[in-house]
């Protein structure tokens, strides 16, 4: 997902959580970003700061990158995703739709494209804290 679209989704989600939890002000938002999606953190942070609503204008957004780990369903091999081995076009495809990784990456041991993304895919809100 594009960083701006991603930031919009985060802001929308934080807003919903704040309303559901009855928070008058959001103070802290913890976000986890999977390495597979190759999100540009600078752009994401900038987009988040631009899109912040009044209710959480003073909130601190902390972003943690999670390493991408893949597990072959055929032979059980576990390995890490490496952006450096990809050409620009492939990296961009995986950036937009991380599942296209199954078109481009194979198990380094048996060559199967049937692997599981154990961690490091997508973006998650770990916690939203604030004042009621």
């Amino acid at each position: 997902m594009h960083e701006w679209a991603l930031a919009e989704a985060i802001i929308s989600s934080v807003s919903q959580i704040a309303e559901k939890e009855g928070l008058k002000e959001v103070r802290e938002v913890k976000i986890k970003v999977g390495e597979l999606q190759q999100v540009e953190l600078d752009i994401l942070e900038f987009a988040l700061s631009e899109l912040k609503m009044a209710k959480f204008k003073n909130a601190k957004f902390s972003i943690e990158t999670v390493k991408a780990e893949l597990l072959c369903r055929v032979c059980g091999q576990k390995w890490s995703f490496s952006r450096n081995k990809l050409d620009m076009e492939t990296a961009e495809a995986i950036h937009f739709v991380p599942e296209t990784v199954h078109a481009y990456i194979k198990c380094p041991r048996c060559g199967s494209p049937d692997f599981e993304i154990l961690q490091g895919r997508g973006v998650w809100l770990e916690s939203v804290k604030g004042v009621k």
Partner: peptide
Amino acid sequence: YSKEKPLPLRGADISNALIELFAA
């Protein structure tokens, strides 16, 4: 994004790709 390559996806991957594209 996948070009003419085979894109073998299991159910959870299909859901994730679908949500990603609708969200973005």
